[in-house]
């Protein structure tokens, strides 16, 4: 347990590593070619934002990174995606294990209809991360603290998770995702169902999370991308148009499509 944090502190010192490498990724939904030739390198301990108009494939690509697209029958993925140099579409890779490493937070907060405690303990339980109850309690507390929701729920851990407010639910889901100690955290428009105050809280949390994780966030709000991310990728019609430092994308985009999106001419 403590190894992990030590490791992370060590990593922080060094230069930013490449966490995820994607090369020539193609995704088909049936006959629909949804992602075309996307190659991208995602850094560790960085927030990377995927932006683009709706239907541009940014969510689809995100779901390739933890193989959530496997659950859709008609979806087919080609190309190469590697995490820490290891091909995640290799036949020997078990998506179950992959997803323990690559956590995901969804657009709509989706707490299980269980207690707050059980929601967070869910991942550690199925992966057998805790040897006993007190260890599990520790994991839950740490995760809830990282999810910046501990103070709000510590007195009612046995209350149903569905009874929280929208912003609290989303932070609970983030806590749930970090409880399994993932290395990558995927966030699919995590704030689109939240009000501005809750959005602010979640954005703050994302900023903190990048200390420990490589965070990939899909958002349709450019302000949000500018606020929370260090790197930004712009998707358009299934193509990765431009990928660079966030500041550069927003101030000096290379591609005319990026520019028109940012200035509001396509969207």
């Amino acid at each position: 347990m403590y190894d992990a944090d030590q490791n992370r502190t060590e990593r922080k010192v060094g230069q930013k590593d490449i966490k995820i490498t994607a090369r020539d990724v193609q995704v088909y939904y049936g006959t629909n070619h949804a992602i075309k030739d996307v190659s991208v390198e995602i850094e560790d301990k960085t927030v990377t934002a995927f932006i683009g108009p709706s239907g541009c494939g940014k969510s689809t690509f995100l779901r390739c990174l933890n193989r959530m697209n496997d659950t859709i029958d008609i979806c087919r993925v080609e190309g190469n995606i590697a995490i820490d140099g290891e091909d995640i579409y290799d036949r020997r890779v078990d998506p179950v294990q992959l997803r323990a490493k690559v956590g995901m937070v969804f657009q709509k907060p989706n707490p299980f209809p269980k207690s707050i405690y059980d929601n967070v303990a869910y991942g550690p339980k199925i992966h057998g991360l805790a040897k006993n109850k007190s260890e599990l309690d520790d994991i839950v507390e740490r995760a809830l603290r990282r999810g910046a929701i501990w103070d709000e729920v510590k007195d009612r851990l046995q209350a149903p998770g569905t009874g929280l407010s929208g912003g609290q639910q989303q932070r609970l889901c983030i806590a749930r995702a970090v409880a399994t100690e993932p290395e990558v955290l995927l966030m699919d428009e995590p704030c689109s169902a939240l009000d501005p105050i809750a959005t602010g809280q979640v954005e703050e949390l994302i900023d903190e999370l990048k200390q420990n994780y490589s965070v990939v966030i899909v958002t349709h709000s450019m302000q949000q991308a500018a606020r929370v991310s260090q790197k930004t990728a712009f998707f358009h019609l299934g193509n990765l148009v431009e990928y660079d430092d966030t500041e550069k994308i927003f101030t000096n985009p290379q591609d005319s499509r990026t520019e028109s999106y940012i200035t509001g001419r396509i969207g």
Binding site: T71, V96, L98, R99, F112, Y122, G123, I126, R176
Partner: peptide, 23 residues
């Protein structure tokens, strides 16, 4: 959303069924 939430946590389909969907 609940199915995906569970799968994204690294549950097997069986675990997803017995721990989330079925309850």
């Amino acid at each position: 959303a609940l199915r995906e939430g569970s799968l994204a946590m690294g549950a097997t389909r069986g675990e997803m069924m017995t721990t989330v969907l079925f309850p």
